[in-house]
C-alpha cells in the first residue's frame, strides 16, 4: 500500500476500524484455510504411500485407515531383500548419472555458443533446439527400436544411455542458454582483449560463473532421466536385470504370495521418491527458476 492510501485510511472515522479488523481476520483465516487445503491436495497421495507402506498384509486390504494401526517395517525389509528392486536402483543411478554428465558437457558447449556468440544461423539453431525440447519420444519408438537392435544394445542399459540424450540434451541446452545470456558481457570482452581464445574464455571465465546453473540443470536432467518410463520399458523388456526403477515398480511382483503386494509397492515407491524429494527441497528455489526460465520471458 502506498503512503497516500495509508493516510487516507487513517483519516477515516475510527468507527469503521473494528469492522475492518474483523474483515481482515476473516480474510486471514480464509487465506490459511486455502493454503492448508492446497497443501493437503498436493501432499496427501504421498502421505498415503507412507501410511500404506507401514501397514501389514491384512490391514492394507481392510477399510482405509488414516494411520497404520499396527505399524510394521516388514514391507521395507521385503523391498530391500528384493534383488530385482535393489538392482534397478543401481541401474537407474548409472543410467541417469551418465546421461546427466553427457548432457551437461555437450549441452554447455552449445549453450555457450547460442547464448554468448553471434553467428549466422543462430536463430535457426535456437528454433531447432526449442523444437527438439518438444520432440515426441513415442513417435520414434519403432525407429529407435530398430536402431538399438542393430547396435546390439537391445535389452541393455546401453540402449538407455544412447537414447536418453534425446530427452535431456535439448532441454539442457535451452535452459543453459538462458542462463548464459543473463551473464554480464564485460568479463568476456576483457578476456578477449587480453588475448584469450573463445574456448579459453568459455571454460576459464564463464563456466565457473554458471556452476549454480549447471547444478540446477543437471538436477533437472537427472530427474527426467530417472523418471523416464517409455524407453526403459521397451528396451529392457527381454532383460529384467537391466530394468530401471520405474519399470521395476510398474512390474513389481510379490516374492511370497501371488497377490499384488500393495504395501511393498508403496514401500518401494517411498524409498525411490524420498531422495528426489530431499533434492527438490534443497534446490527448490533454483528448480523453479530453471523450470520457468524461458517460459516467462521467452
Amino acid at each position: 500500500m502506498t503512503s497516500q492510501t495509508a493516510t487516507s485510511l487513517q483519516s477515516q472515522a475510527s468507527a469503521g476500524e473494528g469492522i475492518r479488523a474483523l474483515r481482515r481476520l476473516v480474510g486471514r483465516i480464509g487465506f490459511w484455510f486455502l493454503i492448508i487445503l492446497i497443501l493437503i491436495y498436493t501432499l496427501f497421495p504421498f502421505y498415503w504411500a507412507i501410511n500404506s507402506s507401514f501397514k501389514g498384509e491384512n490391514e492394507i486390504i481392510a477399510p482405509a485407515t488414516y494411520f497404520p494401526q499396527r505399524p510394521t517395517l516388514v514391507n521395507y525389509q521385503a523391498v530391500f531383500s528384493n534383488d530385482q528392486f535393489v538392482r534397478s536402483l543401481g541401474n537407474s543411478t548409472v543410467v541417469a548419472g551418465t546421461t546427466t554428465i553427457l548432457a551437461l558437457v555437450v549441452g554447455s558447449f552449445a549453450a555457450y555458443a547460442l547464448g554468448r556468440l553471434r553467428f549466422r544461423g543462430r536463430t535457426f539453431m535456437l528454433y531447432a533446439v526449442l523444437a527438439m525440447t518438444m520432440f515426441p519420444q513415442i513417435s520414434i519408438l519403432s525407429g529407435l527400436f530398430a536402431i538399438v537392435t542393430e547396435l546390439g544394445l537391445f535389452g541393455t542399459q546401453g540402449a538407455l544411455m544412447v537414447t536418453y540424450p534425446l530427452i535431456t540434451l535439448p532441454f539442457t541446452v535451452w535452459t543453459l542458454t538462458s542462463f548464459f545470456r543473463g551473464l554480464p558481457g564485460e568479463l568476456e570482452q576483457a578476456a578477449l582483449v587480453d588475448g584469450a581464445t573463445t574456448f579459453q574464455t568459455f571454460y576459464m571465465i564463464l563456466l565457473p560463473l554458471t556452476a549454480p546453473a549447471l547444478v540446477t540443470t543437471g538436477l533437472l536432467a537427472f530427474i527426467s532421466a530417472w523418471n523416464e518410463y517409455l524407453f526403459a520399458l521397451t528396451f529392457t523388456l527381454i532383460n529384467p536385470a537391466a530394468r530401471t526403477v520405474p519399470v521395476a515398480i510398474a512390474l513389481f511382483g510379490g516374492t511370497v504370495s501371488r497377490q499384488e503386494p500393495i504395501a511393498e509397492i508403496m514401500a518401494a515407491s517411498v524409498v525411490v521418491t524420498i531422495p528426489l524429494i530431499v533434492l527438490v527441497l534443497i534446490f527448490q528455489r533454483r528448480i523453479v527458476e530453471g523450470l520457468t526460465a524461458g517460459a516467462v520471458k521467452g
Binding site: 498436493t42 504421498f46 518410463y229 526403477v245 515398480i249 515407491s269 525411490v272 521418491t273 524429494i277 527438490v280
Partner: peptide, 9 residues
Amino acid sequence: VPWAIPTVI
C-alpha cells in the same frame, strides 16, 4: 513434490 514423483510411481 507431485512434480518430482516419477509418473509411474
